[in-house]
Design a protein around this nucleic acid. Structure first.
Lengths: 225, 225
DNA sequence: ACGCTCGCTGAGATTGCGCTGAGAGGACCT
DNA sequence: AGGTCCTCTCAGCGCAATCTCAGCGAGCGT
C-alpha cells in the first residue's frame, strides 16, 4: 500500500514515515504543496495524507488541483484545532477523512486502512480527441465507444500524441519520448507505427485523426479527424 | 449510545463498563463468543467492542457470524500484541478499528466516538466481478456461487486484482503490493501465480476473467470474463 | 515538367515476453 | 521421520510484437 505524506514539519513527517514503513506501507514524503500536486499526479498512491498548513500552496488548493488533474486517490487531511480552516470544513473541502493535530499514531493507521479499504471512487480520468478516447488507468483505447486493442508501442505512441493533441510533434521528439531518449536508429520506425495506428484507429472508422505535417512531424487532430 | 462489550476478563470488562457508563454510554457486557453473537444479532448497538481471545468462539469467528447474520454495526477489536492474530490482521478480519492491549481508556473512548460518528457501512463489503465474488471479511472466493479455495498468496493476488478490477496493473505494482515493497526477485512469480488463479478460477468454468495485457501487465475483467 | 526528398507500404527477420511443466526448498502436521 | 501443502525457481518453447529494409508514390521547389 503506497502512501504520500504531505507535511512541512520535518520531524513530524519523519516520525510518521518511520511508523508507517514499519507497518508495511510504502511511504513517500514531500514538504510543500507544489511537490504534492506533482507527486500525486505522476504516481499512483493508495491514499494521501495532506496537511492543511503548507508553504507555497495550502492543502485546500492542493486537493483542488489534484482532483482537477483527475486523481481521485482518497485523501486524509490533517487540521489544526485553531487553524484558518477548522475540522468541520475538511469534508466540505473534499477530503475523505480528517484528523485534528495532535493525533494518535494508531488512529492515523486505522483511518488510513479504512480509507484504503473503501478504495478510490470512480476516476473519470480519460483523454479525448473527438470520438477517440484513451483511459490511462485501464490502459484502454476506444473509438466511437468501440474498444481498440493496441500493442505497447502503439499505445505509447498514441498516448504521447494524445497528450500533445493539437500540436505538431517531430519524429525526433517522438523517438525520444516514446522510444528511448538515446535512440539513434532509423526514424522510419515512427512512420511504421503511425501506419499501424492509422490502420487500427482511422481506416476502420473512415477518419483521419493523425495528420502528417510534411517536413515537420505529425499532429493529432483534437476533433478526432 | 449503546455499546456491547465482549470481554472474558471480568475485571477489565467491569472497568470499561464503569468508565463508559460515566461517559454517558449505555453498556452491555457479555463474556463469551456465543452470547456475543446472540446479543449482537438480537439488539441494536451503535458500536461493539470485541476481544479476540474468547472462550467458546474467538473474536474472529464472532465477527464472521454476526456479519453473516446481516449485522453491520461497527466493531472495534481488542488484540494482544503477541496473539495468534496480530494487529495487522484485524482489518483483514473485517474489524472497523482495533486497539492493542494494554490500551488507554481515553483512546478507547475517542475511537468509539469516531466509529459511531462514521456509522455502519450501508452495504456488505463483498467485491464482485461478473460471477466472481470475493468476501474480504470471510476470506472467501466464489465463482458462480461455488466456493473456490485459494492459498494465501493466490488470495492476496486476487484481492489486489479485484480492488483494481478493470484497470491494467503491472507486474511490478503487483510485486510491490502483494509480495513485498522491496521485492527484487524474478517477476516470473507473478506469471506463475496468475496461472494458478486461472487454473482455479477460469479453466474449470470456461471463462477468462484475468486478461494478459502484453508488455503492460494484467487486467481483471469487471464483467468476470 | 522534372528531379529530389520525404513519407508510405508490404514483406520478412529478429527479439523477447509470457506460458508452462517440473521440481527444489521450507513450513507445518501427524 | 514421513507426508502434505505452499511458495518460489528455472529452463525451454511458441508466438506476438518490434524492427529492418527496399521499392514506390506523392509533394515541393525550381
Amino acid at each position: 500500500m503506497r502512501v504520500l505524506i504531505v507535511e512541512d514539519e520535518r520531524p513530524l513527517a519523519e516520525t510518521v514515515r518511520h511508523g508507517l514503513t514499519e507497518d508495511g506501507f510504502v511511504v513517500e514524503v514531500v514538504h510543500n504543496g507544489e511537490d504534492a500536486v506533482w507527486a500525486a499526479t505522476e504516481h499512483n498512491y493508495d491514499v494521501i495524507v495532506l496537511d492543511i498548513m503548507l508553504p507555497k500552496l495550502n492543502g485546500y488548493k492542493v486537493l483542488e488541483q489534484i482532483r482537477e488533474n483527475g486523481v481521485w486517490t482518497p485523501v486524509l487531511m490533517l487540521t489544526a484545532k485553531d487553524g484558518e480552516y477548522d475540522q468541520t470544513d475538511a469534508f466540505d473541502l473534499g477530503a475523505d477523512d480528517y484528523l485534528t493535530k495532535p493525533f494518535s499514531f494508531l488512529i492515523l493507521v486505522a483511518r488510513l486502512r479504512a480509507l484504503i479499504r473503501r478504495g478510490a471512487p470512480e476516476r473519470p480520468v480519460v483523454m479525448t480527441a473527438g470520438d477517440l478516447q484513451l483511459d490511462p488507468v485501464r490502459r484502454r483505447v476506444e473509438r466511437v465507444g468501440q474498444e481498440v486493442t493496441l500493442t505497447p508501442r502503439e499505445y505509447g505512441l498514441l498516448a504521447y500524441l494524445m497528450r500533445h493533441r493539437g500540436e505538431t510533434v517531430s519524429k525526433t521528439e517522438i523517438l525520444e519520448n516514446v522510444w528511448d531518449p538515446a535512440f539513434d536508429g532509423d526514424p522510419n520506425v515512427v512512420e511504421v507505427y503511425i501506419r499501424y495506428l492509422r490502420l487500427k484507429l482511422d481506416a476502420p472508422f473512415d477518419r483521419h485523426a493523425i495528420e502528417t505535417v510534411r517536413g515537420m512531424g505529425y499532429r493529432l487532430n483534437p476533433e478526432g479527424g
